[in-house]
Design a protein around this nucleic acid. Structure first.
Lengths: 196, 196, 196, 196
DNA sequence: CATGAATGAGCATTCATTCAT
DNA sequence: CATGAATGAATGCTCATTCAT
């Protein structure tokens, strides 16, 4: 009759992913041993292999989980009919919220090189977000509010600037509060906006 | 009796560093085995330990060598008496030259996370370049040509944008020639300049 | 309320043994994982441990089941009052029938080394069949129809020859039909018979 | 000037192969752990991987070494111009010598199933010896001294009988001295010879 | 009875490092 | 200086077995 209370809301798969997130951010994929992940997650080493086929499958599942969070946030809140300026602000805001609420997730996604072990699905996921960003740029250029520049490159430039800001905060090289983020956002808009 | 002619200008230490650079960029520090570096450098595994105390010492020596190249280039060519705009252009130009002439060096320095194994000297080296960048910003702000913003943050934002551009080129997500780099530079200036 | 009809004549224990037989023959005892047996038998891994105390107990139960089949067949059909030649033919026929009708069982019993994990009961079972064979040889020698030779050795020689023939068929190195088996039987009789 | 004495005649690769032979015979391939081989050989576990790419490569090297010993002995001493009877005796004698001088090698080669991990070269090696045996049978049949029977099958029958005899000795189920071996040889010849 | 998630010791293999030559 | 065989701790992963349901 009595059910165990603990596992009700607690999920072993998520516990493993959470533990992996912390360790991968701190030491990198190759620098983290599977038994370390297990210990940090409070499960046995073998248990990890009930949920993930391999260490590579684990890192891919983690990447997918985190990338989908940002992707969903950005797509969900994107104001399709608003002005480019407002759209830009919305994208920035969602990314900033993600990076603030989930600093480890952001660090994992953007501060590490995953080149060699990401699977096709994740590469496509990553690509789709970049395509979305470039699409926004292209539309805004067509609307005449952004400079002429390869949309992909413009997107990478702005995204790089955003990462730089968040990284400075993450590595405590700068104090970055909401005002600072707002100032950075304004600066980035100035970088790409057509000035009258 | 006859001495070998080859090692005249050729240096085993550099051969090891060059080999390590290629492998670390491709697979990361933890993903690269010392014997792999040895084989790629054309020396025996034990030889690496004549030149470097450990794998960590090797990666630090490499980081130092590459970071000093950029640092020296920027400091050497910095026009102390020119206008902030010209100084900005000079910094950008030196970084772009480095990234173009030595793409692996740039990728190694900026596209990887070295957090856990860099020594104090390298952390200081990294810091000094950032301090220089922030110093430029502060001076330019004092001169009234840049927006008000935490100089460190402004520097990180611009440097992040630069990395984003170079990374897009490195990962072949955008075609980035000299014109594109110039456009990116102009955009970055617009990001930080005070608009009248 | 309603009971399941399926298990009527179908027995989970036998399903496990059948699955184990196929896998042990194919990959050997140590090369086969218990969960593989479970999956192949269509039961859960834990279920195997309701029927068998351990993997070793499983392989012993299987060995016993198969060995008892041959033993029973040979004993049952042995014509105690017939001539040695007829008795020899009967033994050969029963073994051939077993090997033909149950090739996996024969391969399991005779083509694999079970040295390290067979229990006393199975060792005794194995021994008793050899003793029976040696007994037949001894009686036939007493009757003056077989050569003088250590009965145990003569039995092993003939049994080895039989295994060689069956193995050649199993591993498809020779085409062995009923005629070939009959020729082999005749040759084996010639090997041991006293020639006038 | 002074050389080390130990390694002069002592070879680590052979020490590993010798240790592996003993363990594989006793426990089988899958039942033997690589660290066990290392300990038995008196080397570190990693050392095994300097000499062999994998456990499978080790067992294949061992199989090759042992199989080549028998093959060479049989081919070398085969009296091409002698009578079939003398040739048969020669083959039997070489196999018996091998099995007596190197009982573990024989047990390894013939008493275990190597099906799943032998490489092409070893399969070919095995095949070539069987082909040689079948060739002898065919020639002797042509000479009119052997019964009509599929040569391959006849060879397998005799080889099986030989294995049975040696196995009985190995597992101490019979006392097999030179006289017993000679009697077994005679019996086997009777099995296949055409009786006038 | 039956399940299958969970365990953790054990396995094959790798790799940073040493050292006799 | 340079070598590369040798080491053995550590890694990613497997698997016999248990146990709560």
């Amino acid at each position: 009759m009595a059910r165990r209370a603990a596992p009700l809301t607690w999920n072993k798969q998520d516990a493993i992913l959470d533990a992996a997130l912390g360790l991968f951010v701190e030491r990198g994929f190759h620098g983290t041993a599977v038994p370390e992940v297990a210990e940090s997650a409070g499960v046995a080493a073998g248990t990890i292999y009930h949920y993930f086929d391999s260490k590579a499958a684990l890192v891919n599942a983690l990447y997918r989980r985190e990338k989908e969070k940002v992707t969903r946030a950005i797509h969900t809140s994107f104001p399709a009919r608003a002005s480019p300026r407002a759209q830009f602000a919305a994208i920035w805001r969602e990314m900033a919220t993600f990076a603030t609420d989930n600093p480890q997730g952001f660090a994992f996604l953007e501060l590490h090189h995953h080149g060699s072990y990401l699977d096709q699905q994740n590469l496509a996921l990553d690509q789709s977000l970049r395509t979305f960003g470039a699409g926004f740029v292209r539309a805004a250029q067509t609307a005449g509010v952004l400079k002429a520049m390869d949309p992909k490159l413009m997107m990478e430039l702005i995204f790089g600037a955003f990462i730089g800001v968040i990284r400075a905060r993450w590595e405590q090289r700068a104090f970055v509060d909401d005002d600072a983020l707002a100032a950075a956002e304004a600066a980035c808009w100035d970088a790409i906006a057509l000035h009258p």
